[in-house]
Amino acid sequence: MSSFGFHLAFWLLAAMTVGGASMIIVSRNLIHAVIYLVISMLGVAGLYLTLSADFIAVVQVLIYVGAISVLMLFAIMLTPRAERNNTETSLKLPAAAVMVLILTATVFVALDTDWGAVRQAALADQARLIGQSLIREYVLPFEIGAVLLTAALVGAIALARHDDEDAAIHAQSLQAEADGTAEDVALLTDPPLVEVEADAGAGEDGGS
């Protein structure tokens, strides 16, 4: 496959991927860094397409570009008083040295080895084949993956929720139900609203 269009697509997507990843290093604003991460992930999805892995490309766009980047933006927005800058720690120079070592070693091996590679025929009807093999020969890893995702979800919720506040609000609502008065319900809703407004104000200050 050496047509001009294929070359153009490969080099453009490679530039997009590597450029996005480099801009994560360069950009000083964390939210911009997430946007560059999205660009890099989209480039990788395009590279999957040039390797005729259509289903993986769609999964990449759905999960990385759609879900993980939004999750990261959520984490940034939920930490309003933390610093938004994206600078390096004191490990910058050793990290750069190890990075250059890894890069030279792997690129040398990749270019020096005779892989004896031949381009395989593209898999036709990929989504159906992948789905079938997921419920036949890979059914056990599939089920383990389902359990892992459930455990991760429950763990993330258990870690991220406010235990003390929830317990206090729950106790208050039980008390209000027992008393059956409207005053208590009004008292119950007021403090959280004030707190949310204070948080939003702090978030705007931090963002600007």
């Binding site: 290093i25 610093e83 800058n85 600078t87 390096e88 720690t89 990290a95 750069a96 190890v98 990075m99």
Partner: peptide, 9 residues
């Protein structure tokens, strides 16, 4: 690798 090792955030 560089980003994971060197970023402050």
């Amino acid at each position: 690798f560089y980003i994971a090792l060197s970023k402050k955030n």
